[in-house]
Simulated scan of single mutants.
Amino acid sequence: MTKIKRIHKGEYRPIADLVTYSPMPTRQLQQIDPFIFLNHHGFQTYPSPNRGLPFGPHPHRGMETVTFILEGDIMHLDSSGHESVIGPGGVQYMTAGRGLIHSEVSSSEFKKKGGDLEILQLWLNLPARLKMTDPKYVGLQKDQIPAFTLDEGKVEVQQLFGEWNGTKGAFEESFPLTMSTIYLQEGGSFEKVIPEDENIFFYIVRGELDVNGEVVPYRNLVEFEKGEVDLKVTAKTGSILILGHAKPFNEPMVAQGPFVMNTEEEIHQAYEDYQNGKFGTWSH
């Protein structure tokens, strides 16, 4: 079995009253190309009433976001005209491309009633050839995402990108990418072989997993040694895992605030374009 190279614990980085942990980027781990940033918000319970998520209008360029809603909801609005409220088990996929402005806040119902909240956002880089592509957004509820089971039903897989076990993912990816959200009952297990030319994103959201013979608890990102990876995963407790893999771009990356480009000059241009209104207008 492939050895684990390192386990990266999520660093506690609260945002206002929002409990947040992030295993990447840190001083130990800049990125797992093309996976570049993860924020794990919650688990926490909001009172009634509350202010909800604090992510008001802000710009992006040169990257994508995948947002996993486990508990609570998220209302997406953007300068391209997209609008949705996605609830538990749903996923949002946004390509910022050449630039847009969006906000990610809680619905008025959640702010009024309160409740449990746990949401993760993963940033994907875009290859240089796609940095200035047109923005796009798709938000899907849980029942709109293809799923299948393994290990006699003890493992349920939501297939988001790419294909696994004959099930094609819910989203049309910008570059070759495979990604799943995996729900494991205690004792549930699965195996998967990852090609040696692909990098692996392996983050335990909840529970505790035996990963290739090593027990790893939740809020940890597992980094594997290079080469083909033969994954053998068994749940010690009920668990949730986000598993993705893709070929690295092997391109220079300059990230500053909400912009992810290839050069400092492109970052300066992004700020200039945003200030000059080239990311669209915010009329919500």
Rank of each mutant, 00 (worst) to 15 (best):
V229R: 13
I101Q: 02
Q30C: 02
V91Q: 04
R6F: 05
V138G: 00
D143H: 14
T65E: 06
D197P: 00
I145E: 13
P252V: 13
E172Y: 13
R51C: 03
S22I: 12
D230S: 10
K3D: 07
Y203L: 07
T20G: 03
I4C: 04
L241E: 08
S106G: 01
V105P: 00
G169E: 15
G227H: 05
R98D: 01
D273Y: 09
F148W: 11
I36V: 13
M253S: 15
E208I: 06
V193F: 12
E228S: 06
P57M: 01
V211K: 01
E173V: 15
H284E: 02
E173L: 15
V193M: 09
G52I: 07
L38Q: 02
F201A: 08
F249Q: 07
Q275S: 10
D17N: 03
E225V: 04
D33V: 09
G238D: 12
D116Y: 01
S189D: 10
K9I: 06
L53E: 03
F249H: 11
V138N: 05
D273H: 07
N276I: 14
Q158G: 12
H268A: 11
I4S: 03
N50P: 00
Q31R: 10
G166Y: 12
V211H: 02
M24T: 13
H8M: 06
V233K: 08
Y46I: 13
V91F: 10
D143S: 09
Q158M: 14
K226N: 06
I182S: 11
D197L: 08
L29P: 05
N220E: 05
R219L: 03
Q121A: 07
K278C: 00
K113M: 08
G99D: 04
R6D: 06
F175A: 07
E71A: 07
G162F: 15
Y271T: 00
L160G: 15
E196W: 11
G169H: 14
R219S: 08
L140T: 01
G99S: 01
K9D: 03
G187K: 13
D273S: 05
D197K: 06
G238H: 08
S108I: 05
L160I: 12
S103Q: 10
L209S: 07
G188D: 10
V91C: 03
P25S: 04
P146W: 03
G280S: 01
R129P: 00
A255V: 15
F35G: 14
Y183S: 11
E225D: 06
F202Y: 08
D273K: 10
G81T: 12
M261R: 12
A16S: 09
K154G: 15
F43Y: 08
S180R: 01
N276P: 00
K9C: 02
L184A: 10
N212M: 04
A128E: 07
I4Y: 02
G227W: 07
Y183I: 01
S79L: 11
G257K: 08
S22C: 03
H58S: 00
I36K: 05
S174C: 09
G72L: 05
